[in-house]
């Protein structure tokens, strides 16, 4: 047994990279759910983003173009969900699940010619001075741009939801769509925009997998990351910074268990491999038992469809 083989600094840096796809997808879904819409199709949007981003990056030679294409791809797919649920009043749970099925099939078809090809590399940015700070520099300031983007996005979403008028409207729509409608807000339009934002974020998360973290395209490569993102939103009780916490916790345990195995720690592998899920449950139980119910609350209109009768 040799704990010394695990360098905590390197480990932290890996955790940030491993968690970024979930952070991106989860913060997008948080905005969607804040608007009162439950889109269970995160996995489908992620994998679509992964393939769109990969194809675009390979064709253009630029990862940036790839990420933009991934966001567009994810947003377009989510628009399908938006039209069905917002205009045609279809059930959100079932439509979201169908979206996952659809996205998995679509991505596999689109990606057929791109198996076994390498993506153009995304450079790590080396922030001058900051990156050279001992200890912290290595963890915090030597990643690719998307890691910072994902953290910045959390901050932006938090600030917008909390302080801006747009945030207020969004929350109003999510809490009580009839009242928001009565106040003259375009419920359907706001929800559509939120859904597309969520799709774009999920697409970025998928592209982070196919362009940076793995990086390559293979069918079904998201392997359940979208479901984890959904769980993280619940875990975070719909609060932006807790999404970051939840995603890093989950990603952290996942990476840590592999590190423990590699270091030869004598814990049975079966227990290690289920540890990320058990620890997530455990932390949630502790958090929820310390808190009164109201504070846990999901947006009141979550999952309910809205139809303006007048």
């Amino acid at each position: 047994m040799d704990f010394s083989a695990i360098n905590p600094l390197v480990l932290l840096a890996s955790i940030m990279v491993a968690s970024t796809p979930i952070v991106l997808a989860a913060i997008g879904e948080l905005v969607v759910e804040k608007a009162g819409v439950l889109n269970l199709g995160v996995e489908g949007m992620m994998i679509t983003g992964a393939v769109c981003g990969f194809v675009a990056a390979v064709l253009s030679g630029s990862p940036t173009v790839g990420f933009i294409a991934a966001a567009i791809g994810g947003a377009l797919l989510s628009l399908l969900f938006g039209i069905l649920t917002q205009f045609l009043q279809s059930n959100q749970v079932a439509t979201g699940l169908a979206l996952t099925l659809f996205g998995l099939g679509l991505s596999a078809l689109v990606g057929q010619g791109y198996v076994g090809i390498k993506a153009p590399p995304t450079p790590d940015i080396h922030i001058p001075l900051l990156a050279d700070i001992p200890v912290i520099g290595r963890i915090v300031f030597q990643h690719d741009l998307m890691v910072y983007f994902s953290i910045a996005l959390i901050g932006v979403v938090w600030a917008v939801l909390k302080y801006s008028r747009i945030g207020l409207i969004l929350r109003a729509v999510g809490e009580n769509h009839d009242a928001a409608h009565a106040l003259g807000y375009k419920v359907v339009r706001i929800r559509l925009l939120a859904i597309m934002f969520g799709g774009a974020c999920a697409g970025l998360g998928g592209a982070y997998l196919s362009l940076i973290r793995v990086p390559q395209w293979t069918e079904g490569m998201t392997a359940g990351a979208g479901w984890i993102a959904l769980a993280i939103v619940v875990f975070a009780s719909w609060r932006p910074w807790r999404v970051l916490l939840g995603a890093y916790l989950f990603g952290g345990v996942t990476v840590l268990q592999l590190n423990l195995q590699a270091a030869g720690i004598a814990i049975p592998v079966e227990y290690l491999s289920m540890s990320p899920y058990l620890i997530t449950i455990l932390v949630l139980v502790i958090m929820s038992s310390n808190r009164n119910r109201a504070a846990l609350g999901a947006p009141a209109a979550l999952g309910r469809s809205f139809h303006a009768s007048s």
Binding site: M221, A223, A225, A263
Partner: peptide
């Protein structure tokens, strides 16, 4: 077959030397 997990495993091994 789980590319993300395989990548993480490889990184964990590499980081440990």
């Amino acid at each position: 077959f789980d590319p993300a997990k395989e990548a993480d495993a490889a990184k964990a091994l590499i980081e440990q030397g």
